[in-house]
Write a protein that binds this DNA or RNA. Structure first.
Length: 292
DNA sequence: GCCCAGGAGTGTG
DNA sequence: CACACTCATGGG
């Protein structure tokens, strides 16, 4: 079963469209959600275990007994106030990414907790998605607050800062252990609050100063952690897509300028559609959104 | 066993 | 600024 007691269970139905949980939670932008046998997804929002499921065109959200406003947390996480259809309408004018939009109509860019996103993407360098998930679960289990059986909150900078580099390496982080350890000592709640006030370009410049944060990670954190939809993270897949589909080759800086001109304030969504395009192009037929 | 991974940091030409 | 090299391991 799903582990929810049912006693004093909080449950809501939400009308968020377009939305496909598999496309949204399984596309690689976020790493902790798990798909159950019945198609529901279990994750953690604001230190509470939440179950999401699509039923009859609605989104059903359930959570353990508690005090937090689950409806508000889910709406914030899924960016319910974004008009994704309108964003798609705008981006669809670009015939190159139109196919990606058709296939990923239910993908929504999520709003991850700032710190969790920053730490996660520092770990995400030069690793594949299954491993990234494993690293994150490992450090949550070791250093995060236990919410319930087999569920741990993502550890705060302070909690994670208590871990030695060697201990972090023991969680399978490899060379990323040193980056994460340094990062914990440069970030606290006050610093995060300061960063939240910044616009995209300024925020990006600040993030890039942090250990283990380069161009790509900074843009991912801007996009998924701080909600800057104009951010356009360029990884190897996007690089291939830009080369193959737009004949654009060059430095990160030049490609970023191209994306800014071409996709504007919703470049983040364009990036997702291009990413999907390129990955399916690379692995003809293989489904990358496997539900385990 | 082998190859590669949603890169970043550092040093060199 | 552009490139090359290294970084530590686990998935496929």
């Amino acid at each position: 079963m799903n582990g929810f007691s049912g006693y004093a269970l909080r449950q809501f139905e939400l009308d968020i469209a377009p939305l496909d949980l598999g496309q949204t939670l399984g596309c690689g932008q976020t790493f902790r959600w798990r798909c159950q046998q019945d198609g529901s997804w279990i994750g953690i929002l604001s230190n509470q275990v939440v179950e999401l499921k699509e039923e009859d065109g609605l989104l059903r959200a359930r959570a353990d007994p508690g005090n937090g406003d689950i409806r508000r947390e889910v709406c914030r996480y899924l960016r319910a106030s974004d008009n994704v259809s309108e964003i798609q309408r705008i981006l669809r004018k670009d015939k190159v990414i139109a196919p990606g939009i058709r296939k990923m109509r239910g993908l929504r860019i999520v709003k991850i907790d700032e710190w969790e996103c920053l730490a996660s993407y520092v770990l995400a360098t030069y690793a594949n998605i299954p491993r990234i998930s494993k690293m994150i679960e490992s450090i949550a289990r070791e250093y995060g607050t236990k919410i319930r059986e087999e569920s741990y909150a993502f550890p705060s900078p302070h909690e994670l800062g208590r871990a030695s580099v060697k201990a972090l390496a023991g969680c399978g982080l490899g060379y990323r252990a040193a980056y994460l350890n340094s990062l914990c000592r440069e970030i606290d709640e006050q610093r995060l609050d300061e960063l939240k006030k910044l616009g995209y370009e300024e925020l990006r410049e600040e993030l890039i100063q942090l250990p283990g944060v380069g161009d790509k990670v900074a843009d991912c954190v801007c996009l998924f952690g701080f909600g800057k939809l104009e951010s356009f993270p360029i990884d190897v897949w996007i690089e291939r897509a830009l080369s193959r589909l737009y004949k654009q080759n060059g430095t990160y800086r030049s490609l970023r300028e191209f994306a800014k001109d071409r996709f504007g304030k919703y470049a983040g969504y364009a990036q997702e559609y291009l990413y999907y395009n390129e990955r399916t192009f690379a692995s003809e037929g293989a489904c990358m959104f496997t539900r385990t």
